[in-house]
Computed example of a mutant assay.
Amino acid sequence: MQKVVVLDYGSGNLRSAQRALERVGAEVDVTADTAAALDADGLVVPGVGAFAACMAGLDAIGAGPAIEARLRAMRPVLGICVGMQVLFTAGVEHGVESKGLGLLPGRVERLAAPILPHMGWNTVDVSAGSKLFAGMAADTRFYFVHSYAARHASGLISRATHGEPFVAAVEDGLVSATQFHPEKSGDAGAQLLENWLATL
């Protein structure tokens, strides 16, 4: 059984993520302990709310260096929603740019869409070779709640569209991330989390 830490830095659907991961067979610890985060088979970085506030929470527990140490030790990381966004170089909200963790190149910016937030179910245009979406039909829907997104990223990129195309998921070596919430996406989200666990 894979041991997964859901990082508790004051933001995110921690218990929802825990339950979703346990549903697909992981042993889950929700903690702010960076040593535990470093040692686990998998680390999930959740996140809701503002980019800058999430970065402040991560900085407060020294999460940035711990996540970088995980990657140096060849241990995978999964970012969810704002937990995905903070992996990028920077985020821009209300005209203010905040520094991100810089593990993925690019900026997170406000979506050019007539209605924000983008809230509800949407399909994802999955790139060939994706491990996260393996075995899923093209019309599979996932649950999104966000007003900001990255337009570009490194690695294997899967996109969704709300007003404009945006990065819905990234698979870049040991770093995986989803803009949508797999823990709120029912069976589809469970399948994605199970696929991620299979890579650990």
Rank of each mutant, 00 (worst) to 15 (best):
I61Q: 12
A112W: 04
F51S: 03
M74L: 10
A50L: 02
I115V: 14
V92S: 11
A73G: 05
C54G: 04
A63H: 04
D39T: 07
V30R: 10
I115W: 09
A73I: 07
D33I: 06
G106R: 11
A52V: 00
G106L: 03
V86L: 05
F88I: 01
V82Q: 11
L101G: 03
R75Q: 07
V48F: 11
G102V: 06
L87Y: 02
D125Q: 13
A40Q: 10
A40M: 09
S127Y: 08
V126R: 15
A60Q: 13
P65Y: 11
A56M: 06
I67C: 01
P46A: 14
T34S: 09
G42D: 12
D139P: 08
I115K: 15
V48A: 13
R110K: 15
I80T: 01
G57C: 04
E97G: 01
V77S: 04
S127R: 14
A60D: 11
V82L: 14
E93N: 14
I115H: 14
D39G: 13
F88M: 07
V44Y: 07
V96C: 03
D39Q: 14
V48Y: 10
P114V: 10
A53N: 02
A40I: 06
A50H: 02
L43N: 01
L111D: 08
A50N: 02
R107H: 04
M55Y: 06
F133P: 03
P105E: 15
T123C: 01
N122R: 12
H118Y: 08
G102E: 03
I67D: 00
D59V: 07
G135Q: 09
A35N: 08
F88W: 08
E109W: 10
H118L: 11
R75T: 04
L38I: 08
A37C: 13
P65T: 01
L38E: 10
V126W: 07
C54T: 08
G49W: 05
L116V: 09
A36R: 12
D39N: 13
R107A: 06
V30M: 10
P46V: 13
G120W: 07
G57I: 07
G83C: 07
A138W: 03
N122F: 00
M119C: 08
I67E: 00
G47H: 03
A40L: 05
R72E: 11
G79A: 09
L116H: 06
M55N: 08
L104R: 08
